[in-house]
C-alpha cells in the first residue's frame, strides 16, 4: 500500500515567517528608519554648531569671498575621509532627525550629512522622530553618536557630558552637576568605574581642565587619577609627571602615596541596604583548604588551650567539618570576648 502523504510547510519557511511577524511587532512605530532626500534636511537653529560649513557650501563649494573661507576649507578636508567611505559603503549608522514641516531637522549626524553631500549622494538613511526631543534626549543622542567617534578629544567629550549633566539636573531639579556616579553610568550607559572617572574629571579644578582643553592631557583615566588627588603639592607633582609623559601606573602610584598619607582610618566604605554586622568567612568545597585553615589557626601558640578540642575531626564528612568550624568560631569568640 502506498504511504500516506502528509504535506507540511517546511520548518525553515515557517520559522522565517514567525520571526518576520515577531520582528514587525517588536519594532513597529519605533524604528522609523527611512531614506530621506538630503536637500530636505536642515540644522536646528536652536542647537549650537561646531562646524562653520553650511549645506550650501557642501553643495556648491565655498565662496572665495567667504570670511570663514579657510576654516571651512579645513572642515571640508576633515570630512573627506568620511565622504570617501560613504561613497564606497554608504553610512553605517543612520542619522537622527525630527520632522519639522516639510523639512527634517538634525538631531545627530551633522558630519555624516555634510559628508554625504560632499560624496555626491542625494539621500541618506535617517531615523525619524515625530517631534523635537527634549534637551536631555538630544544631548544623550549626541553622546551616543560621539562615543563612536575616535577623533573626538577628551575636552569635546567632557563638554558633551556637561550638557547631559546640566540637562539632567534641570529635569530633576538638582543643583548643577550634583549627579551620582550610578545616575551618570545609567544615563550614558557605561560601567560605574568609567562613570566615576568622568565625574571626577567633570568636578576637577580649572587648572586640570585647562590642560585637557589644550589637549595636553588626553587620557580620561589619567585626568581622573589627578583630579582625585587631595593634597595640593602632590597634585602638582602628579600633574607635572603626567605632562612629562608618566604612564597611568606611575600616576596611580603617586595617588596611592597620597591616600596612605591622608586617610588612616580602616572604616569600611559606606554601603546601602541593611548594615553588615558579621564577618562571613566564606565557603569552600575543597576539604584540603578547610584542613589547611584549621591547621594554620591551631599552630598559633596562643590558641593551644583550645587546640585539644579539634584533634579528632572526621575530614570525610562535610557536616562534621562544618560543625567543627562552628565550634572553632565559638571558642575563639569566647577567648576574645
Amino acid at each position: 500500500m502506498a504511504k500516506k502523504k502528509v504535506f507540511a510547510i517546511s520548518n525553515a519557511l515557517s520559522n522565517g515567517i514567525e520571526e518576520t511577524i515577531q520582528a514587525a511587532h517588536d519594532y513597529s512605530g519605533e524604528l522609523r528608519v527611512e531614506v530621506i532626500p538630503l536637500k530636505r534636511i536642515e540644522v536646528d537653529p536652536e542647537n549650537p554648531r561646531d562646524l562653520a560649513l553650511t549645506y550650501e557650501d557642501a553643495n556648491h563649494g565655498i565662496a572665495k569671498s567667504d570670511p570663514q573661507f579657510e576654516r571651512k576649507e579645513q572642515e571640508v578636508e576633515s570630512l573627506r575621509g568620511i565622504a570617501n567611505s560613504i561613497r564606497d559603503q554608504g553610512i553605517i549608522n543612520p542619522i537622527v532627525v525630527y520632522k519639522f514641516g516639510e523639512k527634517y531637522r538634525l538631531v545627530a549626524g551633522e558630519r555624516r550629512t555634510l559628508a554625504s553631500i560632499i560624496a555626491g549622494k542625494t539621500d541618506i538613511q535617517a531615523k525619524i522622530l515625530d517631534s523635537k526631543p527634549t534637551e536631555l534626549k538630544i544631548s544623550l543622542l549626541q553622546w551616543i553618536e560621539n562615543v563612536e567617534r575616535s577623533d573626538l578629544s577628551l575636552w569635546e567629550r567632557l563638554k558633551n557630558l556637561e550638557k547631559i549633566v546640566v540637562a539632567y539636573a534641570e529635569k530633576n531639579n538638582l543643583p548643577n552637576l550634583e549627579i551620582s556616579v550610578t545616575e551618570l553610568s545609567n544615563l550614558i550607559g557605561c560601567t560605574k568605574p568609567h562613570a566615576a572617572n568622568y565625574k571626577a574629571v567633570l568636578d576637577a579644578d580649572d587648572e586640570l581642565k585647562q590642560f585637557i582643553f589644550s589637549n595636553q592631557i588626553r587620557s580620561l583615566e589619567k585626568a581622573a587619577v589627578i583630579a582625585t588627588i587631595k593634597g595640593f603639592d602632590l597634585k602638582q607633582h602628579a600633574l607635572d609627571e603626567c605632562l612629562a609623559g608618566a604612564n597611568l601606573k606611575r600616576l596611580r602610584g603617586i595617588a596611592a602615596s597620597a591616600s596612605t598619607k591622608i586617610s588612616h582610618s580602616k572604616k569600611p566604605a559606606e554601603s546601602r541596604g541593611r548594615q553588615t554586622t558579621t564577618v562571613n568567612l566564606g565557603a569552600t568545597k575543597n576539604i584540603e583548604v578547610a584542613q589547611l585553615i584549621l591547621d594554620s589557626i591551631l599552630k598559633n601558640n596562643a590558641l593551644s588551650p583550645i587546640a585539644i578540642h579539634f584533634k579528632q575531626v572526621d575530614w570525610d564528612d562535610y557536616r562534621a567539618i562544618n560543625n567543627t568550624f562552628k565550634q572553632l568560631m565559638k571558642k575563639l569568640e569566647e577567648l576574645h570576648a
Binding site: 519557511l13 513597529s28 512605530g29 522609523r32 515625530d130
Partner: peptide, 20 residues
C-alpha cells in the same frame, strides 16, 4: 507570503506609531 511579509516588516519600520 514570506517575501511579502518581509516587505511589510520593512515598511512597519519606516512608519510612525500614529501612521501604521
Amino acid at each position: 507570503i514570506y517575501g511579502m511579509l518581509q516587505l511589510w516588516k520593512q515598511e512597519t519600520y519606516c512608519r510612525a506609531a500614529n501612521n501604521p
